Simulated scan of single mutants.
Amino acid sequence: MVTFSYFGHSCFTLSDGKTTLLFDPFFTNNPLATITAEQVECQYILVSHAHFDHLGDAVAIAKRTGAMIISTAEVAHLCADQGCTVHGMNLGGSYRFDFGKVRVTLALHSSGIVGGTACGFVLHFGDQVIYFAGDTALFGDMKLIGHKEKIDYALLPIGDNFTMGLEDAAMAAQWLNAKHVIPIHYNTWPPIAQDPEKFKELAESTSRAEVHIVSSGNSLELK
């Protein structure tokens, strides 16, 4: 069984009891974080792009734990230059790691690094197919992602201003045909303040998804 643990913004872990994957590890200066970067243990760190609130503490955590950073080529090279073990990928590519398969998906967003691109990830981990959209606008190829993958859980930004807002994220849930959706990337700062209950009502009325609102510091068993 896979456990999702949320630390606010887009920072979370997925763990099957043997391997822990850490995503967009923004702990330092994250007003929603319930633990510090020094308290995190993981074997892999997946980074969607290089903005400060997503690359975050990745380098420090990777150096302390020996975790491998998985990201786009430019972000991977940036981290490798700072002494980290990395695996670089790019849009549309997939790779089978010892914990499962990772495919890199398009995200419509700026990258935070010259020459780079933002991304999302589809993971085959444990017995679940999990889509982490990263920071993104709504885009039509989400229908293709939903067609190609039988998504069990989709992690979607709902904060608006920098990413999709409530309505577009609800449409993404519909296009992805996900069984479950977990909203992320909201209420960190005033420009991305949103009511997740409104998103839940909208998404559940327009898609087949069951929406799970997980507050920072809490976990959800993915079934």
Rank of each mutant, 00 (worst) to 15 (best):
E204P: 12
S215A: 13
I70T: 04
V86S: 01
V214I: 15
S10G: 05
E210H: 10
H87R: 09
I61D: 09
L91A: 00
V47F: 00
F132G: 01
H54K: 09
G17M: 12
A173K: 08
F125W: 10
H51Y: 12
F4M: 05
P190V: 14
S110F: 06
F52T: 06
A80T: 00
H51E: 09
D195Y: 12
F162Y: 15
H185F: 10
F139S: 01
E197M: 14
A172T: 14
D98S: 07
I158N: 02
L144C: 00
L123E: 07
Y186L: 02
H54R: 08
N218H: 15
R103M: 12
A80K: 01
H147P: 00
H51D: 06
L155W: 02
V102Q: 15
C84E: 03
G17V: 15
V211Y: 10
H109Q: 07
K150M: 05
H180M: 10
A203G: 09
L108M: 14
I182Y: 14
G146Y: 04
L176S: 13
I151W: 02
A50W: 00
F139E: 03
S15L: 08
C79T: 00
Y95V: 01
A33C: 06
K148P: 02
F199E: 12
G17H: 15
T34A: 07
H124S: 15
P31C: 07
I35P: 02
W189Q: 09
A133H: 03
L22G: 04
V129S: 13
S94I: 06
